[in-house]
Design a binder for these strands. Sequence first.
DNA 1: TTACTGTCTGATCATCTGATCAGGCTTTCG
DNA 2: CGAAAGCCTGATCAGATGATCAGACAGTAA
Lengths: 219, 219
Amino acid sequence: MAKTSARKSAKTPPKRPARTTRPSADPTRDRILAAAADLFSDRSFAGASTREIAARAGVTQPLLNYHFRSKDDLWRAVVVALFDRLARTLDERTRGLRGVDPLTSAKLRVREFVVFSAHNPQLHRIIMQESKADGPRMDYIAEHVRPFYAATTALFARLAREGTVPPIAPAHLFYILTGAGPTMFVLGPECRRLSGLDPTSDAVIEAHADAVCLLLFGR
Amino acid sequence: MAKTSARKSAKTPPKRPARTTRPSADPTRDRILAAAADLFSDRSFAGASTREIAARAGVTQPLLNYHFRSKDDLWRAVVVALFDRLARTLDERTRGLRGVDPLTSAKLRVREFVVFSAHNPQLHRIIMQESKADGPRMDYIAEHVRPFYAATTALFARLAREGTVPPIAPAHLFYILTGAGPTMFVLGPECRRLSGLDPTSDAVIEAHADAVCLLLFGR
DNA sequence: TTACTGTCTGATCATCTGATCAGGCTTTCG
DNA sequence: CGAAAGCCTGATCAGATGATCAGACAGTAA
């Protein structure tokens, strides 16, 4: 007990400003982030040890606590970096879609997203591993998912109201944007939290089953 | 070093026959299995401690090592139990489909599977958490997935050859049977391992993007 | 030179982890 | 009765984990 003293604020300056966003240009920090993204997505948060991450980055373990306040902080920085890359890539790839009609534009964006996800699965793996954990890490992901797909979500809500896309499409959109599965996300608790639909209602389950059949049988 | 002596075989009898299948009727063991399924699917293998599992089951931690040889053994018993429940439920629900034509039968089976998964997400969560871990646990899952969907896979391979379903359907089938996501499984390394398709080829990625658009836009 | 700052490391801490062991309690069998 | 077996627990082990600390080292400014 005793705990000696305060954790934060004590000491002189807490080593680092603990910034979460950054203009980059710090090769060591970037190597740590890359190694952490690898291992977090491979082994889950609890399964990836800081010593293993440090070893993969080619540094010693205490250095992680120099660049990041804690293992949790490192994890959050990884999520931010991966979301940044995703947003940057999508912006680049869909720059020429200003005047196109919304439906065509949305289709092209979805296609680009799928292609990106196929080549960059780390973020989706990390999200999937947190899919049930209703702790602070899933909250953090939700915070970053919401603004990212806000515009597309609004578009799909309108298309669904107009009848241009099926009513379940906004829910499917979420699972596609997270890269995770229909059963886990369309029918999971995160569906309610992020799309407003009730994932346990028979109507949603039936509609989802229909959609899976549609996907599987081609028409 | 030293390690005292052998792990197995030493001692008198190793406490328990270490059976993996069983006619059941062991309430304590079943409570442990249920608690372990809860926590493994919530927090991943590494994130669930044996003490937490024991506490949820209402027993003490050493008892887990009495009923199961190790934490890994407990995890495997959980997977077996969940696969058993899945197979039993599907058999019950599709008993009256003997004479029906294969396509209709497959559609009904898929629908039943989706409904089951919506109400029993534990197995799929566990699979998802192991989706990248190429260690022994994913091997164990693959062993159990393969025979489970062997019959359905064969059917879909035939339908795809006949042109009754799209060529990508067998790959989609796998991701639906695991309950996991298109990006993770259709385009992930497990796709190659379990369906034989090359998940990194542009053709598969394009076909998958088409399927996602189909699912999302309704036609 | 000296002083200072930012980057990095070895040694070490308290805690948590899975596993083991001796022994207690209850039931079954003689 | 007594012996044996099955089920379960408290105490404890060695190892791994995240975090901290003092100090090494390099670069810069005076």
